[in-house]
Amino acid sequence: MISIQVNGEQRDVEIDGDTPLLWVLRDVLAMTGTKFGCGIAQCGACTVHIDGVPTRSCRLPVSQVGDRAVTTIEGVGATSAGRRIQKAWLDLEVIQCGYCQSGQIMAASALLATNPSPDDADIDAAMSGNICRCGTYVRIREGIKQAARHG
């Protein structure tokens, strides 16, 4: 039995500890907002926050989460940065197919939480690990800046 704290709730799961957090969230807890894109930490679709740090859940064995707080796309709206990013995303119509956007929003809100006014270089550094096949990068950049302005 492994116990993890997800979006403020303690969840017990009966699962092999090697299982990446991504699959525990999706297949065991049915929290499907966090997405599978590559499984090798190259696309960012699976990004969650572990104690606020953006983390690829596809490469994090659930046994290594410990008592650190997991925040997912379903819960990030409860944070100030997450709420602002989500709003900017809708205001600017960042989203196309949306599949990468859970990860983008998680990465962007972690950036905003640590850096209230990121410049282009900061955005590149924080967001280049997240792939968007629909090519929404131009608006993601704008979205982050708008969310920062409305901080």
Binding site: V53, P54, R59, L60, Q64
Partner: peptide
């Protein structure tokens, strides 16, 4: 390709 795992401080972002 690297920062999301290794982190900019080199401490490792995931494991």
């Amino acid at each position: 390709a690297c920062a999301s795992c290794h982190a900019w401080n080199g401490r490792g972002a995931i494991t």
